[in-house]
């Protein structure tokens, strides 16, 4: 297996008293070794749900209702979605780590930062204290934090500092794959750059693969190799980041790019649709908002077409040939 992660036909359903909500449907993608993959789409389209499903961190209401996610970790390939608890614990943080969305609340408020950095290591192997401490200072250095940070508590750190602690934490075990959920959102531009640089460094020095979730298309363009665009629980377009951004094939990608006023600025909210109901069954989910919707869009599920430079998109139109 050459890819570190292969996701096929993932489907996630949230159950509630009133109705079930299929938040993610037919999602397939892969991440190569040392590859940086971007996942973009407006808020509520199912990005977090997708990666929480991979990490088996869905809230109680959420269930994986279909799909597979093969992770090629230290103990060979295994399906993250069906592996037993014991082996799941074994690959967590060692093969696959996460920088969670909203790092604001991601640190235990009553445990010093250093301990939280360390316990992710000692849970997986017998590491001596000096060894762990050295690794901690190495990583704090990498993310631009002072060593004294280890003795501090979450409430003594700024948002940016907490975010960087979370990134350091994710890299502690040199995992093969790190998922960063909006790791750069809500940070000032300088810290954003620093975070981006840390990700690139980790890839170059350790060969770490990343899935980067965000809606700053400008930052994505400079950071990731490949990009996947999500809309209403489905991936509508994938491909090399430059190809997709310069020559979007799917009307939604186009809309997303059009709403970015200037590269490097935070993307404004695309006219909010969100997932109000389950993704439309039958026909194209985007047709209601698509400027180029045709009759066929309501009747048939759009075909998956290949992009010339690699990648795919799902649309009845193949406009640019």
């Amino acid at each position: 297996m050459s890819n570190i992660l292969e996701v096929t036909d993932l489907e996630v359903t949230y159950r509630s008293r009133s109705a079930d909500l299929v938040a993610v449907q037919d999602v397939s993608f892969s991440v190569g070794r040392g590859e940086l993959v971007g996942l973009v789409g407006e808020s509520g389209c199912g990005k977090s749900t997708t990666i929480n499903a991979l990490l088996r961190l869905l809230p109680r209401a959420g269930r994986v209702t279909a799909g597979m996610a093969l992770l090629d970790g230290h103990a060979g390939p295994l399906d993250l979605l069906s592996v037993d608890e014991k082996r799941l614990r074994d690959v967590r943080w060692r093969d696959i780590a996460i920088v969670p969305q909203g790092a604001m609340n991601s640190l235990n408020p009553v445990m010093p930062v250093g301990k939280q950095l360390a316990d992710g290591v000692t849970a997986h192997r017998d590491a001596s204290t000096p060894e762990v401490n050295e690794r901690i200072s190495e990583l704090l250095n990498l993310v631009g934090l002072a060593e004294e940070t280890t003795g501090r508590y979450a409430h003594e750190l700024s948002g940016g500092m907490k975010q960087r602690v979370c990134i350091a934490m994710a890299l502690m075990n040199r995992p093969a794959l790190v998922i960063a959920d909006e790791a750069t959102s809500a940070l000032d531009v300088i810290v954003q750059r620093l975070v981006a640089q840390t990700i690139l460094d980790a890839r170059d020095k350790m060969g770490t693969s990343f899935i980067v979730i965000g809606h700053d298309i400008g930052l994505m363009a400079q950071l990731v190799d490949r990009i996947a665009v999500m809309y209403l629980g489905r991936i509508v377009e994938t491909g090399p980041v430059i190809d997709v951004l310069t020559d979007p094939k799917h009307p939604y990608t186009e809309l997303l790019l059009a709403s970015v006023p200037e590269v490097g600025k935070e993307a404004p909210a695309v006219q909010s649709g969100g997932l109000v109901a389950s993704p439309v069954t039958g026909g194209c989910a985007f047709r209601e908002r698509c400027p180029e919707a045709m009759e066929v869009c309501a009747a048939e599920t759009p075909p998956v077409r290949r992009r010339s430079g690699g990648g795919e998109f799902a649309c009845h139109l193949d406009r640019h040939g």
Partner: peptide, 26 residues
């Protein structure tokens, strides 16, 4: 439902450690 408890789980800590050092402690 706190993010830090879910993150502790993502770290592959023993469930007793997640329970006592992260959840109960808070």
């Amino acid at each position: 439902g706190e993010e830090y408890v879910r993150l502790a789980e993502a770290k592959g800590l023993r469930s007793s450690r997640v329970l006592f050092n992260y959840q109960v402690r808070n």
